[in-house]
């Protein structure tokens, strides 16, 4: 068969195409971030960070929103983390493929694809109506915990399964028990992947609106940054403050990402 394109030419075309795609994607992402920071950073100053919002958010800062966002997210992650990572270790280390693990995996996959407003509705009915927790950080945190659980389970399980089988074998051969092997040989190697899943979940919690508006509410002093932002834009209250809020959201997620990775490098994944 006669070649129509020389291999060298094909190589160049492929390389060119891949580079173009990558640069386009990175370019778009950076453009969005730069645009938001460009519009938002001028609004941010000390009083914007430390003062409560006034007149529907047209004046004052967003201090209450920052605190609500951080507490709802922290609560959600702290609740979901032990359950999610525990389930992942159960699935990856303690069971073989059977009907129970298949049910858990199938549920986790299905739950990951459900729109967040459905979680909001569930949270509203279960935590507010049935348990009577009211519009609160607690209701929101619990709802978000359920929402991010599937993500944490899936990413943690993948990270655990990616750890070389050799490490487990070595640990057992040196007289390690199952739990010692998981704790000392598997977990430190999986921790980076597990953390990535958690950071992803933090991002989703911080940015969530639908599930939060139904469980924490949208009272001016009791709303997360994402909801504050949503209200400022939808009600046409103040585009400037909306951009300021968005900029702080971006900076916050960036900051969490960097700090989490630094802590892991420093304490757990050293030498890896």
């Amino acid at each position: 068969m006669k070649r129509r394109i020389k291999p060298q030419t094909a190589e160049k075309i492929a390389k060119g195409a891949i580079w173009t795609i990558a640069l386009m994607v990175i370019g778009i992402l950076i453009a969005i971030i730069v645009y938001i920071l460009y519009k938002g950073l001028p609004v941010i100053n000390w009083s914007f960070l430390t003062e409560a919002p006034r007149r529907m958010g047209k004046e004052g800062g967003i201090s209450s929103s920052i605190i609500i966002t951080l507490s709802v997210t922290a609560l959600a992650v702290l609740i979901a983390m032990p359950f999610g990572i525990g389930t992942a270790f159960y699935l990856a280390e303690y069971t073989r493929d059977n009907i129970i693990t298949r049910i858990i995996r199938f549920s986790a996959e299905s739950l990951a694809g459900i729109p967040s407003i459905v979680y909001g509705l569930f949270g509203y009915i279960f935590f507010l109506e049935i348990l009577g927790l009211g519009w609160s950080v607690l209701s929101g945190g619990l709802t978000l915990a359920i929402m991010i659980l599937p993500t944490i389970i899936r990413t943690s399980e993948e990270a655990i399964l990616a750890v070389s089988k050799t490490y487990r074998e070595v640990s057992f051969s040196l007289g390690g028990t199952k739990w010692q092997t998981i704790r000392k040989a598997v977990f430190p190697s999986a921790v980076r992947g597990i953390t990535n899943g958690i950071i992803l979940s933090v991002g989703r919690s911080v940015a969530e609106t639908a599930a939060v508006i139904l469980t924490v509410g949208s009272d001016l002093k009791m709303r997360t940054m994402a909801i504050h932002f949503y209200q400022l834009v939808m009600e046409g209250i103040s585009m400037e403050n909306a951009y300021g809020t968005a900029a702080i959201l971006i900076i916050l997620i960036f900051f969490i990402n960097v700090v989490a990775n630094m802590l892991i490098d420093r304490f757990i994944a050293k030498g890896r």
Binding site: T166, Y167, E169, V170, S171, S173, L174, G175, G176, T177, Q180, K184, A185, P188, S189, K270, G271, R272
Partner: peptide, 22 residues
Amino acid sequence: FDVPTPLPMSIFDNIAYGPRLK
């Protein structure tokens, strides 16, 4: 084993792995 299987940690921690489990 037939291939070298160091654990992803320091030289010292590799050797101390077994004794520390005890």
